[in-house]
Amino acid sequence: MALDPQGPALVEGPVEIVLDDGTVARSDRFMVAVCTCRRSRTCPWCDTSHRARGRNVSPPEDRNP
């Protein structure tokens, strides 16, 4: 398992996770990203919600007036 402090836990699959309500989430993928930030809409799987949204990058200047 690999942990990224800014992202998900990467786990070699297949994976079964027992959720708080007792249901089991399963993935047969060879590598699974498990959400650790609790922002994912697809918990327990990571949906990249941990990534910064809405970058404050100004548009390039028009070089041809």
Rank of each mutant, 00 (worst) to 15 (best):
M1S: 13
Q6P: 00
S49G: 05
R51P: 00
V24W: 06
A25H: 06
D4Q: 10
W45L: 10
R55Q: 12
D21E: 12
A52I: 05
D28E: 15
D62V: 09
E16I: 01
V15W: 01
P5H: 04
D47W: 00
P65D: 09
D62A: 09
T48R: 05
T48F: 14
R63P: 04
G13L: 09
R55M: 10
E16A: 15
V18D: 03
L10C: 03
A33R: 02
Q6L: 13
L3K: 14
R38N: 14
M1F: 11
R51K: 13
C43F: 13
D20V: 06
D21Y: 10
P8K: 02
A25I: 08
V11K: 04
R39Y: 04
Q6E: 15
S58D: 12
R38M: 11
D47G: 03
R51A: 13
V32W: 01
S49E: 00
V11W: 02
W45Q: 01
C37D: 03
R29P: 00
D28C: 01
D21T: 04
C37Q: 04
M1V: 14
G22P: 08
G22T: 08
S27Y: 04
E16T: 06
V11C: 10
W45V: 00
R26Y: 05
P8Q: 04
P60L: 12
C46E: 00
H50E: 09
N56L: 14
R53Y: 07
A25K: 02
P44Q: 04
T48S: 15
C37A: 12
L10P: 00
L3C: 11
E61G: 07
A2N: 10
W45G: 02
C37M: 05
D28P: 01
A25E: 03
R26M: 08
G7F: 03
T42R: 13
S58M: 07
D21G: 07
G13C: 11
G13N: 11
V24D: 05
R63W: 07
E12W: 03
G7Q: 06
S40G: 06
P60M: 07
D21K: 07
A33G: 12
M31W: 10
M31R: 08
E61K: 11
E16W: 03
R29T: 05
R63L: 13
F30N: 14
